[in-house]
C-alpha cells in the first residue's frame, strides 16, 4: 500500500515594541512601533543620525537634531519588527507491505 502526505504552513506576524516602565509612563500603554507611518520613522532616524545617537552617517541634515515630542530616543520606536515570515513544506510518502 502507498500513501502520500503533504504538510504546509506559512506564518506571518508583527511584534509589539518592548516597553519599559519609564516608556509606559512617558508614552502610554498604547505606544508601539511607527508602522505604517514611514515618514515619522525616517524623521526620527535622520534626527538620531544628525545627533550622533546611532553612529550612522548624516544623510539629511535638514531634519535637525530635536526629536518630535514625546520621543526622546532612537529606541523609543522603530518602523517595525517581527518574526515576519516562516514557511514550511513537508511532503512524504509511506509504503507498507505484508
Amino acid at each position: 500500500m502507498l500513501s502520500g502526505f503533504h504538510d504546509w504552513s506559512e506564518r506571518r506576524e508583527t511584534d509589539y515594541q518592548d516597553l519599559s516602565l519609564e516608556m509606559i509612563d512617558r508614552l502610554g500603554y498604547k505606544w508601539d512601533n511607527f508602522a505604517p507611518t514611514w515618514t515619522l520613522a525616517q524623521q526620527v532616524a535622520d534626527i538620531a543620525n544628525n545627533r550622533g545617537d546611532t553612529g550612522a552617517p548624516v544623510t539629511n541634515a535638514a531634519a535637525g537634531t530635536i526629536y518630535p515630542a514625546p520621543i526622546v530616543s532612537a529606541d523609543d520606536a522603530y518602523y517595525d519588527a517581527s518574526w515576519a515570515t516562516r514557511r514550511s513544506r513537508l511532503p512524504a510518502c509511506l509504503m507498507t507491505g505484508m
Partner: peptide
C-alpha cells in the same frame, strides 16, 4: 512479516526582521 518504508523532504525558511536606524 510486514515492512514499512517512508521517505520525506522538509523545507523550512524564516526571517526575523528589525527596521534599524543603526546600520545604514
Amino acid at each position: 512479516l510486514s515492512v514499512s518504508a517512508t521517505a520525506y523532504l522538509h523545507e523550512n525558511e524564516g526571517q526575523g526582521i528589525w527596521f534599524t536606524p543603526y546600520v545604514s
